[in-house]
Design a protein around this nucleic acid. Sequence first.
DNA 1: CCAAAAGTGTTATGCTTACACCCATGC
DNA 2: GCATGGGTGTAAGCATAACACTTTTGG
Lengths: 238, 238
Amino acid sequence: MTAKDRSSPETYVYEHPRPAVTVDIILFTFHNADLKLLLVQRKGEPFQGKWALPGGFVQPDEDLDTAALRELAEETNVSDVYLEQLYTFGEPDRDPRTRVITVAYFALLSADQSAQLNVQSNSDASDARWWSMYDLPELAFDHARILQYALQRLRWKLEWTALGFLLLPAEFTLSELQKVYETVLNEPLDKRNFRRKMQATDVLEETGNIREGDHRPAKLYRFTAKAIELEQVRRRFP
Amino acid sequence: MTAKDRSSPETYVYEHPRPAVTVDIILFTFHNADLKLLLVQRKGEPFQGKWALPGGFVQPDEDLDTAALRELAEETNVSDVYLEQLYTFGEPDRDPRTRVITVAYFALLSADQSAQLNVQSNSDASDARWWSMYDLPELAFDHARILQYALQRLRWKLEWTALGFLLLPAEFTLSELQKVYETVLNEPLDKRNFRRKMQATDVLEETGNIREGDHRPAKLYRFTAKAIELEQVRRRFP
DNA sequence: CCAAAAGTGTTATGCTTACACCCATGC
DNA sequence: GCATGGGTGTAAGCATAACACTTTTGG
């Protein structure tokens, strides 16, 4: 129906108007006992100086997931993240320049990896940094709304799947895991019930190592292979 | 970044390549004790003669939801449907002609409305008809995959929200409701437990009317206002 | 020895499941 | 009166929720 023609090296001609399509990524991690996400500061108009979700245009030959991973790699050099599509936002005037439809992605980065990133440290050299989910700057475009949606999804994921560990280092204590849950869900949880529930799902195993710290040492755990993508949404009509 | 220019009444010129963006709608309804969905037969290449999801291009000034509703109205004349975004599919070669990214929508039509539609009856005049979810023709593009995804979502919706009634007429018996659940979930359910569960959620109320039929008459129910969008996904950490 | 975090069980309650028979009507 | 679908209750097992104290280490 719509034909495409390459009329010159610089331009693309179509019979019908086409929107631009971007991907935006909400990259969450856990650091300093807080839920963080990556934002980049806009250098040009519109919304100059405001903070925005990392993202960019989808290339002609690339899948949406691939585009999200590529943008993420360009911004952070990390490639080993959990990624899933979140929602597509397409109000006609969400970008004042031209029609832009954005496919939002939701990504989880382990604390291991986010700690090694130089994003945070050279924050004057770079235009990207981590922000606390609970202390955000003003956001560009409709990114505040996208972020709210992502937070909802993250909360749902934690409650119904075992993906909380993706925000933590490879080995972690149960207290650290509980802290992740409490921070994301934004409410305190009962320690005994939390531990029992986690151990009942049998996605955890002891590594045999212990964390030595200020006080009583704690057992370290890792997640078993089956933990990821165990979308164990329980049946309601069994 | 990407600039748009209208070079002639017939063409659109952009500095960067842009994909075409469509919406495709999976319109479910319940009819003849079976789960149905609307498909349209393709008149041209590619996939000529194959069946496809209704849908079309997103117009430059229109929201994605609006585009889905418009396409649906063009195809069926119905406007009062439950609609939600499903997923965005964007593999580079999912359409052999040009890059097409499609935002899939998931829609539920009441049996009332689908019965009044002339889609089914004039199936030789029209190119659209209802198909049983469990007896489908060959589908064009990647629509079989999209449909599988939609069915998953529908099952999840039935299990965790009270949206089953959106497939039924305004008044219905509990047996009819159970039949919807059994058909969608594709398994038999216990009658007493089903009724108790439904009545416990208190989204149902008796209309006072009864359905007279072949045998013992049945009480008719409607759903209360709070039933819709009661996304009562229960908390796991209360 | 004190501060701080790790770790651990029990009970009461409510929900879920499995299961079988009587009821009201039309023919 | 019989065939057909409508309608109902209970008991056992399971999961959940609420709740407080002891243990281990470092300083």
